[in-house]
C-alpha cells in the first residue's frame, strides 16, 4: 500500500490550524485522518490503498482509494459511508464526468450526488423534508468527501485550477437520496440498468439549480408545462462531445408528485411528454431550446417534503450524469 506522509501534532486544534494553513480544507474544520481511521475505511470498502479510483489526465492526477479514504475521514464520514464515497468518486472521475471542466469552470458548477437503493435507509440519507440542506450527517459528509477529493486530490483549488467567478454553496456538499417510497416510480438507478436491491450513486454536474414553482396547476400536464417553461427559460445548449446522451435532472417535489400519482403517470410518461417540448425550436430569448438527445436523458428523481408547490431543475454543465453501483 502507498505510504502517505505522516504528521504529528500536539493537539487537535494545532492539527486543524495547520490544515487550514496548508490549504487542505474547504474552510471548515476537519476530522484528523489518522492512519488507523484511514485503514478502517479502506477495510470497510474492501479496497487496498493503492487501488486507482480514477484519473484526471489534464491535471496529471491519479486518485487512489487511500487518498479518497483520507478525505472521507476529514469530511466527517463514518466508515460505513466510505463505499458510497468510493462510488461517487468513481462516477465523478468517469471520463464523461469531465472532472477537469466541471470543477474548473468559470460558472462554478457543482456536483449533485444522488443515492438510490437500500443503502439510503441503512445510512440515514435524507430524501424528504430538508434533504438539500444541513442537518443530516450522511448527506453532509458524503457530499463533502467528494468535494474534498476534488480539492485535495484533483487540485480544484479556488484561484488555482478552480476558476469559478462566484462558485456556489452547493460546492461545500450536495448529496441527497431519492424518495423511492413516495410512489411506484422506478428508482433512478433501476432506470439506468441496475437491480432495485443494488445500491447506487449518480453524480450529476450542475451548472445551475432552478426552482420550478407552480402553485396553481392541479394536474400532471400542468406541472409538466411548468417544468418545460422553466427549463426553456434557461435553455440547454447540448455538446457534440456528449452527443445524444446529455442529461438534465428534475427533482420532483411532494406537491407535484401527487398529481403524477393520482393520474398514474410513470417516469417514462413524463419523459415522453417533456422531450419534444424541450427540444422544440426557440421562440425568443426566454424560450430557448433545451437540447436533450433522448427522452431517457431526462432524469426524474422524487425527493423533498410537503408544502411547497415546487420541483427543482438541476441544469447540466459539460458532463454526463454517471451512475455507479456501490460495492
Amino acid at each position: 500500500m502507498t505510504t502517505a506522509p505522516q504528521h504529528a501534532y500536539d493537539s487537535y486544534e494545532a492539527l486543524v490550524e495547520d490544515y487550514f494553513e496548508k490549504g487542505w480544507t474547504d474552510g471548515l474544520p476537519i476530522m484528523p485522518p489518522t492512519p488507523e481511521k484511514v485503514a478502517a475505511f479502506l477495510e470497510r470498502a474492501g479496497l487496498s490503498g493503492d487501488e486507482v479510483l480514477g484519473t484526471v489526465p489534464t491535471r496529471e492526477v491519479t486518485c487512489t482509494a487511500q487518498q479518497a479514504a483520507a478525505n472521507a475521514v476529514m469530511a466527517g464520514c463514518l466508515p460505513e459511508y466510505f463505499p458510497t464515497v468510493v462510488a461517487a468518486v468513481r462516477a465523478h472521475l468517469h471520463p464523461k464526468g469531465n472532472c477537469h471542466s466541471t470543477t474548473g469552470t468559470l460558472s462554478g458548477a457543482a456536483q449533485a450526488v444522488i443515492i438510490n437503493g437500500p443503502i439510503r435507509n441503512e445510512l440515514g440519507v435524507a430524501s424528504r423534508a430538508g434533504c438539500f440542506g444541513p442537518g443530516f450527517r450522511a448527506n453532509a459528509t458524503i457530499g463533502r468527501a467528494l468535494r474534498l477529493v476534488i480539492r485535495n486530490v484533483c487540485r480544484g483549488i479556488p484561484g488555482f485550477l478552480d476558476r469559478a467567478s462566484y462558485s456556489t454553496p452547493a460546492r461545500y456538499s450536495f448529496c441527497f437520496g431519492e424518495n423511492e417510497e413516495a410512489s411506484e416510480w422506478e428508482p433512478l438507478h433501476v432506470q439506468r440498468g441496475l437491480a432495485p436491491e443494488q445500491s447506487a450513486v449518480t453524480v450529476h454536474s450542475l451548472m445551475k439549480m432552478v426552482e420550478a414553482t407552480d402553485f396553481t396547476s392541479r394536474n400532471a400536464e400542468g406541472v409538466c408545462d411548468t417544468l418545460v417553461t422553466n427549463i426553456r427559460a434557461n435553455g440547454i445548449a447540448g455538446d457534440s462531445w456528449l452527443g445524444e446522451d446529455g442529461n438534465v435532472v428534475i427533482v420532483v417535489g411532494h406537491e407535484h408528485h401527487r398529481f403524477f400519482n393520482e393520474e398514474g403517470w410513470s417516469k417514462a410518461d413524463i419523459q415522453q411528454y417533456l422531450w419534444p417540448r424541450l427540444n422544440a425550436p426557440a421562440t425568443s430569448a426566454t424560450d430557448r431550446m433545451a437540447r436533450i438527445g433522448k427522452p431517457e436523458g431526462i432524469l426524474i428523481v422524487a425527493a423533498g417534503g410537503a408544502g411547497m408547490g415546487a420541483s427543482w431543475l438541476l441544469l447540466p454543465h459539460l458532463a454526463l450524469a454517471i451512475t455507479e453501483p456501490i460495492s
Binding site: F215, T216, R218, E255, R258, A306, G307, M308, G309
Partner: peptide, 9 residues
C-alpha cells in the same frame, strides 16, 4: 387535508 394543498393559489 388534500386536495387542498398546503400552499396554493
Amino acid at each position: 387535508d388534500y386536495p387542498w394543498v398546503p400552499i396554493a393559489i
